[in-house]
Nucleic acid binder design. Structure first.
Lengths: 185, 185
DNA sequence: GTCTATAATCAGATAGAC
DNA sequence: GTCTATCTGATTATAGAC
């Protein structure tokens, strides 16, 4: 097949960035077109309506999530480590698109909620395969979600040091819970 | 002083509910007025502009946060318990207003971010006073934020059972970290 | 495949009656 | 203190040229 038009990808990226940086309200067709470097008419050629544009990012996140879960599963540092560290990265492609969809999920787009729900379930499941303990896995997954939430409104974010500390805690607890009788060897 | 007009409070409540249920875009002056049972003109008497309405919820959250932290500090079940349990309640007054502001924080309202930041800091600090351990306190605080985030887009929420499990985990870890040498008695 | 121009709709805000 | 009516500007979407 012929290479997909570059304009399409640029429009999707611009839409996601605007949603994250300035919110749903600011992500108008005109603003998206401007940032993508096309005209409003040009945008509407690729995405005939705003709903079509929304569907575009939703599909994009679905694809990215599948790839992300594979990477997470294969990560040498482990799934929990991978999850918490990437949950503070909101300027990578995945972070931007994930946060963009979590903004859409607040509006009248029920499918956005479904896509997020699936991502959340896949992460929790993958962490659980690694840690074994379901409660601890849920805790890690919740922390990841909390990190995204904080980062998304530019709160006084956590640095690498703080994430390191959390991961040490998680590993200690995992070890303690694995050896049932006498924790911490 | 005379009793504050009931319409003002009803408008604020309606605005917060609409923000949470349907997003920033749906929370128009007309929609807010309708839900509050007043006309657009009536609304604009109490809040002369949309910015004034936004300032209204922000101030409201500030007041509610101070009260919430006091309640948390005095909670017989403990601060961590109180935080995680109330983080799944998004239909109480505090939950609605907190989530409403976290939505405003995504738009062009820098003060919303400040107010949320303060709430976050106050919670983490209060939990830390109870648990002692700063890393564990941060973990609990992040879980609370994650629970709010999940609840806010109506994800497959966690039930009371799951919260109970998490709290048992937190208490175990707190106990283990308190007795430095030999965890868990 | 991308543009300009424009129609239709909707949001925010003002004026003035009651 | 609350209402109706109205204006202005922004936003989505369409039509048709290039």
């Amino acid at each position: 097949m012929p290479p997909p038009p570059a304009a399409r990808a640029k429009v999707l990226r611009a839409f996601a960035e605007l949603l994250v940086e300035s919110g749903e309200r600011a992500a108008t067709l005109e603003a998206v077109a401007d940032r993508a470097g096309v005209s409003k008419g040009g945008l509407l050629y690729h995405f005939p309506s705003k709903d079509a544009l929304v569907d575009g990012v939703l599909d994009h996140l679905s694809a990215l999530t599948s790839a992300d879960v594979e990477t997470m599963r294969a990560a040498p540092e482990g799934a929990a480590d991978y999850l918490l560290r990437t949950s503070t990265v909101i300027d990578g492609e995945f972070g931007v698109v994930y946060l963009a969809v979590s903004r859409l999920a607040q509006g009248p787009y029920p499918r956005a909620r479904d896509v997020l729900d699936e991502a959340q379930a896949a992460w929790t499941q993958t962490v659980r395969e690694e840690l074994g303990d379901p409660v601890l896995s849920r805790a890690v997954s919740l922390m990841g979600e909390g990190l995204y939430a904080l980062a998304s409104f530019g709160a006084t974010g956590l640095g690498d040091r703080e994430i390191d500390d959390l991961l040490v805690l998680v590993r200690d607890v995992a070890a303690a819970r694995a050896t049932t009788a006498r924790p911490r060897a």
